[in-house]
Design a binder for these strands. Structure first.
Length: 187
DNA sequence: TCAGTGATTAGG
DNA sequence: CTAATCACTGAG
């Protein structure tokens, strides 16, 4: 008769009342090419290592779209590192690059559709490795659920700014076609 | 332009 | 076990 889970609906309604700005599951469970261009201008809220809750405007992101995208980690198949990308959108995919820098990604789309958005920059912290280093984001954030987490989430604070786009950065290993996809979005 | 740095992965 | 790879950054 009624669809859905009653307990989850109750939690969602209470969450909306207490925290109306937090982006809900529905935001993330859409194609990455719909989600990614909507992220610049949204706010990342994070509990910093000193315990303070701080907001940063998202300035630059990139979309990585499924097993056919030669630039996407899922192109090489399902591994323990990329496992979280195969879950329903709304959690974090974190990995280490060049032995030094943690990369912050938001999983998008439905289950078994491996997609993610790389957060390349937030205000005052341009650069994907710079922002994670200065905000204390590391592997302990792997799999964090942005809908329920009390230490990191994203908000729509009503800001609307024009979003530009262009090719993704640092993916020379991908073929010309995938290198030229204009899937980087920035303010 | 190029070295630093180490987790992750495939392969033997 | 080995070796290759790597969605980056900062120095020169």
């Amino acid at each position: 008769m009624f669809s859905g889970n009653g307990t989850n609906l109750k939690i969602k309604l209470l969450t909306d009342i207490m925290d109306p700005k937090r982006l809900a599951r529905e935001f993330y469970v859409r194609d990455v090419l719909v989600v990614a261009p909507e992220l610049p201008g949204k706010y990342m809220v994070i509990k910093l290592p000193d315990g303070s809750l701080t907001r940063f405007k998202v300035t630059e992101v990139e979309a990585y779209r499924g097993a056919e995208d030669q630039a996407c980690h899922a192109y090489k198949g399902r591994t323990s590192r990329t496992e979280i990308m195969y879950s329903e959108g709304g959690s974090l995919y974190i990995y280490l690059i060049y032995g030094m820098y943690w990369m912050l990604n938001i999983v998008t789309g439905g289950k078994d559709n491996p997609q993610a958005v790389l957060i390349r920059g937030v205000e005052d912290h341009p650069g994907p490795g710079i922002l994670t280093k200065s905000l204390g984001i590391n592997k302990s954030f792997y799999g964090e659920d942005l809908v329920e987490s009390q230490r990191i989430w994203f908000e729509d604070r009503g800001l609307v700014q024009p979003v530009k786009n262009g090719p993704r950065i640092g993916i020379d290993y991908a073929g010309e076609y995938w290198k030229s996809r204009p899937w980087r979005y920035f303010l």
